[in-house]
Amino acid sequence: MIGTKSFEAIVNGEQVKLNIPQNLRLIDVLRNYLGLTGTKEGCGEGECGACTVLVDGEPYNSCLLFALQVQNKNILTIEGLASYNNLHPLQESFLEHGAVQCGYCTPGMLLVAKALLDKNPNPTREEIKVAISGNLCRCTGYSKIVDAISAVAEKGVKR
């Protein structure tokens, strides 16, 4: 039996303190302990990007991280991006441009897009494509996703 250890981090702006098994992945803590099921598992081996979360502003595959690797870090999941009543411009743009189909890649796509725009508010289409290159959309809605991110970039919105 694998022992437990204390895990502390800031998740979506809130301090979290838990006792967790040492071998638990970050995605499992988010989904099974914190109920943040917006983070999706698609492949479990870092190929698809559906489990993307931001750790100190950088996108990471949460299926490839042990939770204890992000001890005391600042973690943002899709639930922390905005609320139902107050959408992030990227969320509005995804809806407006038809960039959402089955929706399984959407949380990860939105978070990599946010990470990109926070660093580079005016990316080219090529830079957007590179930024989302680790995130698969099996509905193959890539051009609409790039359109949606571009539209926000053109408005120069930073939040």
Partner: peptide, 12 residues
């Protein structure tokens, strides 16, 4: 707008 779009962009 997509009927279930809001739930999908918010992770709900």
């Amino acid at each position: 707008p997509r009927y279930e779009g809001l739930g999908k962009v918010t992770g709900q």
